[in-house]
Design a protein around this nucleic acid. Structure first.
Lengths: 247, 247
DNA sequence: GCGAAACCGCGTACAGCGTACCCAGTGGAG
DNA sequence: CTCCACTGGGTACGCTGTACGCGGTTTCGC
């Protein structure tokens, strides 16, 4: 009953109105979960494990968090807190968005298991709200709210997609327990099989191409990002042709 | 030992060289899992449940699939098989990519739980390969392989991001068991709380804007897609300034 | 034609998970 | 000072993925 009263975690006050002072804090719990996830992946951050990490009994965690999903929600919001957007609407929207994109990428690379987090997009934790304010503030005034939403969504999609790709090989290494060369050596037979079947000329082309030295991951990311920002630029310079709102 | 021999599911032959003929097929298993997932979400498609669905004993599934992750791999590839790209390099690259994007969106909306699937990007199942061939074939010749990879990745990121957003509210409805109006009513207090705090002007702006009637989901998707295709167009008309490969 | 080997389907068993429930102790509100 | 909403936490349950071993079936090598 007491938990069902609240729509989500963020509606529940951290400190109770009455009764003894809680021994632990949400921040402490989220940090512990992140520490475990960094070392062994998010699936290792079980309720018992996180409880043990902060020195609590297994079931005590449920005094702070109604379910594991909410624990993940806490973690997700804390990760968003790592993204520095403090000086964000600086006047130069392009530099601002590039900075934001690189911040997000850096966070994802620090915590590759974010790719496995399924958050509700409608929980509106404090750090999610802070991001919304700063990042959407960048284009606010230049474009309509609708366009702003769509453009930032596009940027987020690009960053997520690009970093997911970057992460996937790394994470496979972690999960399999094999080293990078071992993993490549192991996946080689399948690639060989596919290439040698002769049915996939373009895939073969990609594989052959991949042997050549390429740009660094970061340069690749920057290059794609520039493209996305160009795309956003056309929307910023050309005011929205939708209803109302002309500057 | 017998399983560890193979790099991944697709390296293992469906029919064994010796021994009795298997009673079930991979297609049958994947279909059963998809049927369950469509009805109750992917997490409901447990090994026991899928086995029961095809009329097999719980442990019999492991004769076909080394682990649940591989079952998901099977499912993921079968979902990719639902994407129709049969007539794909048609000559009109823009129409082709738009068609592909709408196909992907339609598949995601048919199976909203794909958002929770974590596939290895390097398993190279038959349908993934088929998609690569047809979709990358569209821009092949127009741009370098490197650019092709990057542009298709951008398109995929957009589609995924956009559809994820579309799905998230729908899925929340399914998970919570509440109806759409109930869910909105329940999340309303948090939104109210945030708006009334006065600390989040842009978020407030978004909320206010959201009350107005907007474009249909599909039109929104199409609009964003057009932007991405415009972005791709600049890369297609301007040949890549990278090493080699001029038409 | 005939072992032997490789496979089949499946029952049992186990560790680990999220979490419902219950308990005794605690500290602020009246 | 009393009350009771709160605390931390132990026990227990149903579920999960899956290791292992069984007896029957099919195919290969001879």
């Amino acid at each position: 009953m007491t938990d069902a009263e609240y729509v989500n975690i963020w509606m529940r006050p951290e400190r109770p109105a009455r009764g003894p002072k809680p021994t632990y804090s949400r921040a402490q719990i989220a940090e512990a979960a992140i520490r475990i996830a960094d070392a062994e992946g998010l699936e290792a951050a079980t309720m018992r494990r996180v409880a043990a990490e902060i020195g609590a009994g297994a079931m005590s965690l449920y005094r702070y968090v109604p379910s594991r999903d909410d624990l993940v929600e806490l973690v997700a919001d804390r990760l968003q807190g790592e993204i520095d957007v403090s000086g964000l609407p600086s006047g130069d929207w392009r530099a601002d968005l590039a900075h934001y994109a690189h911040e997000v990428r850096a966070m994802w690379l620090r915590h590759p298991w974010v790719a496995t987090v399924h958050r509700s997009l409608h929980s509106y934790g404090p750090n999610q709200l802070r991001l919304i304010e700063h990042v959407m503030g960048v284009l606010d005034g230049h474009v309509s709210i609708d366009e702003n939403l769509q453009l930032i969504a596009l940027l987020n999609s690009y960053v997520e997609g690009a970093v997911r790709e970057e992460i996937s090989s790394t994470e496979e290494v972690r999960r399999s327990g094999l080293s990078e060369p071992e993993r490549i050596a192991r996946s080689y037979p399948r690639i060989r099989q596919v290439v040698e079947s002769g049915d996939y000329p373009i895939f073969t082309k990609i594989v052959m191409q991949a042997r050549r030295p390429r740009l660094s991951r970061e340069d690749q990311f920057r290059h794609g990002l520039d493209r996305v920002l160009d795309c956003i630029a056309t929307a910023v310079t050309t005011p929205a042709p939708v209803l109302g709102e002309e500057p």
